[in-house]
């Protein structure tokens, strides 16, 4: 803990070694976060790069209160949100339709890997992916998501429902079939 504090202080002073260590310490986790918010690895790399540049730029303002990892993670999410706002301010569509999705077996849950799920997230349309991430992983409610993404609460709800529907459908389609084949 003390080491991390010193690392943060040295990084704020612009020491290259400290910054490199801090990057090594946090980059794998943060790359995982960036991957969830991106359509592919290239976009995640861009976000990670931009995020760490911001971390080193703003690290002097970190007050050593609360989790540093949480602080860095919030920067990564903000970078993803900024990129989204810049590229996807569009389509004020209210989509409140109910989606029929097939149910999936509990056995799928144990068999499916994190990488497989990440691939499914990448395939989501950008806004669905963003809403799903903010709701499921950041624990935001629809009001907060609507504010962050400059959309209505209804749109946030419908986007989440649609995201879940697409994901569930794909999970069942891809992994359910594999399961069936094995069991056949």
């Amino acid at each position: 803990m003390k080491d991390l504090r010193q690392l943060i202080i040295d990084s704020a002073a612009g020491k290259a070694k400290a910054q490199a260590k801090l990057y090594q310490l946090l980059a794998p986790k943060m790359f995982g976060v960036c991957l969830r918010y991106s359509k592919d690895e290239t976009e995640a790399e861009d976000n990670l790069q931009e995020g760490f540049l911001k971390v080193f730029e703003k690290i002097g303002s970190y007050r050593h209160e609360g989790s540093f990892e949480g602080w860095v993670r919030r920067i990564m999410v903000n970078v993803a949100l900024e990129r989204y706002r810049k590229n996807h301010v569009m389509h004020p569509v209210e989509d409140m339709a109910a989606y029929e999705v097939p149910e999936f077996d509990d056995r799928i849950i144990s068999d499916i890997s994190a990488k497989d799920l990440m691939k499914l997230i990448h395939e989501l349309p950008p806004r669905y992916r963003m809403v799903f991430n903010l709701y499921v992983f950041e624990g935001m409610n629809h009001k907060e998501i609507a504010k962050e993404m400059k959309i209505s609460v209804g749109t946030s709800k419908s986007n989440l429902a649609r995201a879940r529907g697409i994901l569930q459908e794909k999970v069942v389609k891809v992994f359910g079939e594999i399961e069936n084949n094995y069991s056949a």
């Binding site: 980059a27 794998p28 995982g32 991957l35 969830r36 080193f56 994190a114 799920l117 997230i121 879940r164």
Partner: peptide, 29 residues
């Protein structure tokens, strides 16, 4: 079902880690 879906993704991806390519750090520098 929704909760199950959310939980599935949360449990598998919450602490997901992957090493970024080394050139990302080069680009940051």
């Amino acid at each position: 079902d929704n909760e199950k879906m959310d939980e599935l993704f949360r449990s598998k991806l919450e602490g997901f880690e992957q090493d970024p390519p080394s050139y990302v750090w080069d680009r940051i520098r």
